[in-house]
Amino acid sequence: MEQVSQLSEFGKIFIFLILGILLVTATVFLSVILAPKKPTYLKLTSYECGEEPTGNSWIQFNSRFYVVALIFLLFDVEMVFIFPWATVFGQKSLLAAAPMWGWLTLIEMFVFVGILILGLVYVWRRGDLDWIKPAQQIPHVDIAIPKSAYDRINKEVYVVRSFNAGTEPEPISSDVPKPGPSLSKPAFKPTFRKPNNG
């Protein structure tokens, strides 16, 4: 009779699963009851920092992530193989039965992992682990001025005039530009979007 009433351990996990989903859904439902519900057109648009959302975001995405996923798959499958081995290679009972068991399986696993690490080294050497960066372009301008002219300016030593509190400061050149004729008004005119369903 005792066995009938026993839940298996995964049965207990199942209780956890059901209860977790129930409780979270109940809380969300409570919020649905409590919270106001006044959807408007603008509220339901996708958030793009206040700009009008353009286009769909379900697009093709950067394949760098794809390479990472491939390498992950390789190693994850490997890990699934290692887990069961890791629990038996050093068992005392098995070692007592066959003394070479431990070292034999250890070397076998090293060979297996070694092949996969070789794969990692290959991907590493090929540069697939490196993040694809845009090539940096150094700005270049076609001018006749030689580079030495710039170097001379850069090397020029500027002398700081000694500070003297007593004397009047020398007037800096007086050709301050006078304010010209009235400037044009700012070209930016804010517009406001009216909600369609006002």
Partner: peptide, 13 residues
């Protein structure tokens, strides 16, 4: 406070 906030599901989602 979070419990009382409106649940918004974007139209495009």
């Amino acid at each position: 406070k979070m419990l009382q906030k409106e649940l918004i599901t974007p139209a495009a989602a």
